[in-house]
Design a protein around this nucleic acid. Sequence first.
DNA 1: CTGTATCCTTTGGGATACTG
DNA 2: CAGTATCCCAAAGGATACAG
Lengths: 142, 142
Amino acid sequence: MSDPAVSRTLPFPPSGADGEGAASCSTDHPASRVIREILARVGDKWSLLVIGLLHDGPLRFTEIQRRVDGISHRMLTQTLRSLQRDGLVSRTSYAEIPPRVEYAVTPLGRSLSEPAIALAAWAAEHHRAILDARAEFDGDDA
Amino acid sequence: MSDPAVSRTLPFPPSGADGEGAASCSTDHPASRVIREILARVGDKWSLLVIGLLHDGPLRFTEIQRRVDGISHRMLTQTLRSLQRDGLVSRTSYAEIPPRVEYAVTPLGRSLSEPAIALAAWAAEHHRAILDARAEFDGDDA
DNA sequence: CTGTATCCTTTGGGATACTG
DNA sequence: CAGTATCCCAAAGGATACAG
C-alpha cells in the first residue's frame, strides 16, 4: 500500500483548504465533490460487487449473473457498461456461435479493490457493533 | 482447457494473489453481503459527507446544514437519525431556549473515516484516468 | 448467449408547512 | 433552533419481451 501524500487528514477541511486538485475546482467544497464522485461511481448497488467478483479472474456474462445473487439481467448489463466506460472492467467478445463475452477487471479496476476491501473489512469488523447500537436505539424505551 | 485458441486482449492471470482475505469471492460470496451492507449504510448521498464533516469536532444542526452544501433540512434530519441509530454519531441536546443540539462522531464513526478516506484518496488519484477512459469510450467512434 | 427497449413499482430526496 | 409530517417528483431498479 502506497500512501504518498495522503496523510491522515480529514475528507473535509473546515473552510476549504484544497489538497487534491483533481480537476477544475474553483468552488468551495473540494473534498465533498470527491466523495460525491466516488459514491456516484461505486456507491450503487452492484458495481463493487462485480468488481470484487472479477478480482478472481475473467468471467462470462451469464456466469456473473449466476454468481451475483439477485442482480437482474438489465442491471448487470447496465453495471458492466458503466464499469467498462470508466475503464474499470474490460469487455472481450468472441465471434462465435453462440456468442461469448468475457469481462475482466483492468489494472485500474484492480486498484479499486484495495480501498474497497478495506471498507469491506471495516464493515466486517464493526458489523456487530452496528447491529448492537441499532438494537439499543430501536428498543431502548425499557 | 477445452477452449479454442482465441487471442485474449488482456494480460490477466486467472487467479490473482489475494493477500487480504476479507473480500475474496472464490468459494462462496460472503463478501457480497458485507459489501451490500456497507453500501446500504454509507452509500447514500450524505452519510459519509456528514461523518467526514464531524471528524473535526461536534457541530450543531444548523451548522452542519450550512456546511454540507445542498443538503435539505429533511435529509439532514434523516441522515443524522440513521447515523445515530447505527452508533456512528452521538446526539446531545441541551435544555435551553432556544434549543441547542450537538452532533459528534463516536469512536465507531471515527473508525469509519479511515477506509472512507482511503476510498476518497483512490478517487482523487484515479479521477483523471476515469475521465480519460470515459471520454475515450464516449467518443471513440472516430 | 448477450444485449436493448419498454413498462411499472419502489425509493430517494427536495420543498414546504407546522410543532415544541 | 431543532424536528416532524405531507406532498410530490425524479431516479433506481426489477420483470419482461424482443433482437442479434
